[in-house]
Write a protein that binds this DNA or RNA. Structure first.
Lengths: 253, 253
DNA sequence: CAGTGGTCTAGACCACCGT
DNA sequence: CGGTGGTCTAGACCACTGA
């Protein structure tokens, strides 16, 4: 007795812990500050380390914390809003579209890509790899699949490989008339290569943005972009976007 | 020597396990089928139950599995594409917008809502609660915050509370001229009430779609919609959307 | 090198579901 | 009621970082 609320409602420990930590982050820590290590924190709250970690994982998922092996746990800055271009009609690689071409390979598509591309499994596909920076940090990687039929003017001499090749492919793609694009967003977990590039561990939660570009009634290109879910807020439309995060400082004035 | 690849790269067990399970799901299981229980599976793979669970959690996050306490683990159907209306310009609650009003309360806004609404902390706000079904399943809940100034014609007599009240608020809102809307998507974890409504556990990963509606140069309404991240693929634009998921059957023909 | 977070184990108990 | 997934523990070892 004595507590303001009946506390036999069986709230899991890690959930309560998360709430307590969340409030502490609002009131007693500032962005970039490092927290005590997991063993100390667990001891301080009288729980096993695994239980504490469950709470930390949630907070990291919500973009409140950042953890790095060998370093420690720090308070994360608010999420960055990254524009994903809602209704804008432009080919990828148009001047100043925030993406940076990395390289390009020609390959036979995987089954999933071939299906989405509505092309035969035997038709070769150029795959351009790009990455996107924001606030000095890499926030997304992209695989841009372009069937050879979309870039008929491309010659092998243009550029054999590397970023020059990637730019040549994009330049050729721009010769087509873009008719429209469809876009979808879903939750995924980072593949090993994406994780490395995004400075995350494999399996980290990511937002996968899939865009299909159509021209001449066919699918001219397919973009699969992988954004860090912990640090990114995807915004649609031309504007920078709404900003509403967790609710700090609800303490009575 | 002997192996095609240097396998001392130290791949975590749960990661390898996830891959193995993923391939098994593609080849040996069909949608809706129930898997052996966690203790059996762990024993079969020679790992601790916690390790197996780490793999299952990932697969559930990716929408491949569905787990329910007291029941078991089943193979999930492919994610449903839910339209989030990319560039469409229409007020929430317009005929046939897939949402179903639940109830409505009038309250003083939280600090976060008041800020996003660009209104004083003292101005009352109507909060309409809605939910969205898809494929016979509830896939999203929404809190729609509408400052009293946006619905000046609303009378207390219209409907005191409940879904009738919610519809009255929406009807009044439609009298304004919608100028534009901004939208953003980010990863979150389900609050306790949302989780209950979405038939998930608290803290489950969700996609939070925040939309700001503007009219007469002000923010006329703010929608915060919470979608199940495991079962939903958000699509933008008028079309049903691209469908590209994991890459089954890459085994050599 | 010492300290951090990441992985893993082998148990235990609990909340929930259907029968 | 038995069986399921969810929570929790107290340890151990590993991979990585920075001094």
């Amino acid at each position: 007795m004595g507590t303001t609320q009946l506390d036999s409602v069986q709230e899991p420990k890690y959930w309560h812990l998360k709430t307590v930590l969340s409030e502490a982050l609002d009131s007693e820590f500032s962005v970039g500050e490092i927290l005590p290590n997991e063993r100390d924190l667990a001891a301080r709250f009288g729980v096993a380390r695994a239980t504490l970690r469950q709470a930390l994982e949630q907070l990291e998922l919500e973009g409140r914390l950042q953890r790095r092996r060998g370093v420690g746990t720090t308070v994360a800055p608010p999420r960055v809003g990254v524009a994903v271009g809602g209704a804008q009609h432009a080919w990828p690689g148009t001047a100043g579209d925030a993406w940076q071409a990395v390289d390009c390979v020609q390959e036979t598509p995987s089954a999933a890509v071939a299906t989405a591309l509505e092309t035969g499994a035997d038709e070769p596909v150029h795959t351009v790899r790009r990455s996107r920076m924001s606030g000095g940090q890499r926030v997304a990687t992209e695989l841009l699949h372009i069937p050879a039929a979309s870039v008929p003017g491309l010659t092998a001499i243009d550029a054999p490989s590397g970023t020059a090749r990637a730019r040549a492919v994009l330049r050729e793609l721009h010769r087509m008339d873009l008719e429209g694009q469809e876009r979808s967003v879903e939750l995924g977990s980072a593949r090993a290569d994406d994780a490395r590039e995004l400075d995350r561990l494999p399996g980290s939660p990511v937002l996968v943005v899939t865009t299909r570009f159509t021209a001449q009634g066919r699918t001219a290109a397919l973009s699969v972009a992988t954004y860090r879910a912990d640090t990114c807020r995807l915004t649609f439309g031309e504007t920078p976007g709404v900003e509403i995060h967790h609710d700090p400082a609800r303490r009575a004035s």
